[in-house]
Computed example of a mutant assay.
Amino acid sequence: MQLKRWLVAGAVVIMAAAVAGAAPATASHPVDPAQQSLRTLGLRHNLYLGTAVDLAALNDSADPQYRATVAKEFSSVTAENAMKWAELEPTRGTYNWGPADELVAFAKRNNQKLRGHVLVWHNQLPAWLTDGVNDGSISTDELRDLLRKHITTVVKRYQGKIWQWDVVNEAVSDPWDNPPTLHYKGFWAQHLGPGYIADAFRWARAADPKALLFYNDYNIEAFGSGDPANDKTQFVYDMVRQLRRDGVPVDGVGSQGHLGTQYGNYSTLQVAAALKKFAGLGVATAFTEVDVRSQLTEGVQAGDSNEINPRLQASAANYSALLQACLADRHCLSYTVWGFTDKHSWVPGWFSDPPEGMATIMDENYQPKRAYFELKADLIYSGPPYVLPRIPQRPRR
């Protein structure tokens, strides 16, 4: 679907040849920060701006702009799918390392950090594993050993190359699930019990003593009621606190940041308060999968600016709220968008009833949206040298 008419007139992605972005400043030609890349602006704060990478798009010779944009705009990359178990080991005992290895090499060439995603998740598991458990040919003891072997094999292969690993992903239910009381959910909890979480972190630490190990989940951007029975953020907070008390090597908590403009959204203050509270546990934080989707009504699809513009503005506000909160907390190490162009977004394929989209910071033609410029503004105006102490004005005599 092409939604071109809602673009800001004249907005252009500046595709500079240099990976880091802008040309050197001189006294007569100072650098305009608005022309710098997200990665350059983020590194002023030692904050890594990242994106999930679609390996097929990265290798599409007919679309070189995708690869160029990943290299120019981002200081961190995450494999969108290439490091998930079903992709790495589609046949038992036979690994397909090619795509993941390619992203590792790409990141090294472009001086980018690498987030590993994901070691343990209940989705995108290989069929041989889930079928074996369902038909009884894989016992509980064997399943636990297979999980240990998978974590150890993958982490050791990329030892010293991965900055942050999403060790366990989405282990906690939602209040709208059945039963509504929050609980540990999914394939691994069902077959191994919640103890698999601590096991996974310990196995990952044994395989790589230096990688940062994260628990990653969605809908944990801000606290709600504070009741762990129905407040997912509180449940995750209590879980991480207990894991740390038990000596489990949890180094960070990743908040995915999948938001939607149709919901009541968080303020920067709410998000910053959550980050601060997690930091109090002694862990790092990161936004790991940020996107902000909108419902594609008939008016939106017809190009009605009365429906499109409010969605673009709300999307930008959501992106900005998360980034401002991250900038406000020194423990927030990275801010990763889950794809940067609507040309390669998971949202339309997943949210179809009603249809949703417009979730990224650039359109299908790599033209930046309002959200892209708001992220830049947040990075520019969050401190020196572009924000300095006020100059007092003296009364004229």
Rank of each mutant, 00 (worst) to 15 (best):
L3N: 01
W6N: 01
V19P: 11
G21Y: 09
A25V: 08
T26D: 03
V31P: 08
V31T: 13
V31G: 10
S37W: 07
R39S: 13
L43W: 09
L43F: 06
H45E: 03
L49C: 08
T51D: 03
T51V: 09
A52V: 02
A56G: 12
Q65A: 10
K72F: 04
S75Q: 09
V77E: 07
T78Y: 08
E80W: 10
A82D: 14
A82K: 09
M83E: 09
M83I: 06
K84W: 02
A86S: 14
E87A: 15
E89A: 10
P90F: 00
T91W: 06
R92A: 13
N96G: 07
L103F: 05
K108G: 03
N110A: 00
R115Q: 15
R115T: 13
H117D: 05
T130E: 04
T130L: 07
T130R: 07
D131A: 13
G136L: 06
D141A: 15
R144A: 13
L146G: 08
L146F: 12
T152F: 00
T153K: 04
V154R: 04
Q159I: 05
D166A: 03
D166V: 02
S173T: 03
D174R: 15
D174H: 14
D177H: 14
P180L: 04
K185C: 08
I197P: 01
I197S: 01
A198G: 09
D199W: 03
R205E: 07
S225Y: 01
N230M: 05
D231F: 05
Q242M: 08
L243V: 11
G247A: 03
V248W: 02
Q256K: 02
G257F: 00
G257S: 01
Q262M: 07
Y263N: 14
A272K: 07
K276W: 06
K276S: 14
K276N: 13
K276E: 11
A279G: 14
G282Q: 12
G282N: 10
F287G: 00
F287P: 00
T288W: 00
D291C: 07
S294D: 06
E298D: 15
Q301G: 04
Q301R: 15
Q301C: 05
D304A: 12
S305K: 14
I308R: 06
I308C: 13
N309F: 11
P310Y: 01
R311E: 03
A314G: 13
A317F: 06
N318Y: 02
A321Q: 00
L323E: 12
A325T: 00
H331Y: 11
S334H: 12
W338R: 05
G339N: 01
S345Y: 02
W346M: 11
P348V: 10
G349I: 07
S352H: 14
D353A: 13
P355S: 01
E356Q: 15
M358A: 13
I361W: 07
D363C: 12
E364A: 14
P368W: 04
K369N: 04
Y372N: 02
E374N: 11
A377P: 08
I380W: 02
Y381C: 05
Y386C: 08
R390I: 11
I391P: 08
Q393V: 12
